[in-house]
Amino acid sequence: MSVTVYTTTRCPYCVMLKNFLMEREIPFNEVNVESDPEKMQELINKTGQMGVPQTEINGQWVIGFDPNSIMMALKQ
């Protein structure tokens, strides 16, 4: 299972998402796009979205803090 969370420093929903994953002991990689403009551009190119958080789970994208969609993607 591969989970990558794209975040920024001041995003409250990013914190909520990371806490959600940690509480459920779901391992994830975090990419802070605020400190890496190249990664931000890659993210926009992949999803067409500028907002965060965005989560990639085994190649499937979940935009925003959406616990139900995250859990569904993890079960696939």
Results as ranks from 00 to 15, higher is better:
P27L: 07
T4H: 05
K46V: 07
T9N: 08
K75I: 05
P67F: 09
T47N: 11
Y6K: 05
T9A: 12
R10L: 14
G59K: 08
P12C: 06
E30Q: 04
Q76M: 13
V62D: 10
G48W: 07
V3A: 07
V52S: 04
N45W: 06
T47V: 11
K75V: 08
Q54C: 06
Q49E: 14
E38G: 09
N29T: 08
V31H: 01
P67Q: 11
C11V: 05
N45R: 12
P37F: 05
Q76I: 04
M71A: 09
R10E: 14
R24D: 07
N32E: 00
S35F: 07
Q49M: 11
W61C: 06
W61D: 08
I26V: 15
L21C: 01
E30I: 00
M22D: 15
I57H: 02
E34A: 13
I26Q: 10
E25L: 05
E34G: 14
Q60K: 15
E56C: 09
K75W: 07
E38S: 13
R10Y: 14
K75N: 15
T47L: 06
N32W: 00
N45M: 10
L74T: 02
P27I: 02
N32V: 02
F28M: 03
N29W: 02
N45K: 11
M72L: 12
V31F: 01
G59R: 06
P37G: 11
M71S: 13
G51W: 04
L21V: 03
L43P: 02
P67K: 09
V3H: 03
M72H: 12
I70G: 02
F65L: 09
N68Y: 10
T47M: 10
L43W: 01
S69P: 05
L17E: 03
I44T: 10
L17Y: 04
N68G: 10
D36H: 09
V62I: 15
I57P: 00
I70Q: 01
V3E: 03
Q76D: 13
C11M: 10
E34P: 00
D66K: 13
G59N: 09
L74S: 01
M1N: 12
P53N: 08
T55I: 15
Q60N: 14
K18P: 05
V62C: 12
R24S: 12
I57S: 03
S35V: 08
N68S: 14
M16W: 07
S35D: 14
E38A: 14
R24G: 11
G48I: 08
Q54S: 08
P53K: 00
V33S: 03
E25D: 15
D66H: 11
D66M: 08
V52Y: 01
E56W: 02
N45E: 14
M71R: 11
N19E: 13
W61Y: 13
E30C: 03
M22R: 14
I26W: 03
L21T: 01
V5H: 00
S35R: 12
K39L: 04
R10V: 12
M40H: 12
V52T: 15
Q41H: 10
E25G: 03
M40D: 09
M72V: 10
M16I: 05
T9P: 05
Q49T: 11
Q76G: 15
L21M: 04
K75M: 07
W61E: 03
Q49F: 10
P53W: 01
V5L: 07
I26K: 05
N32A: 00
G48R: 08
G48V: 09
V52H: 00
M40A: 15
N32G: 02
K75T: 15
Q60L: 10
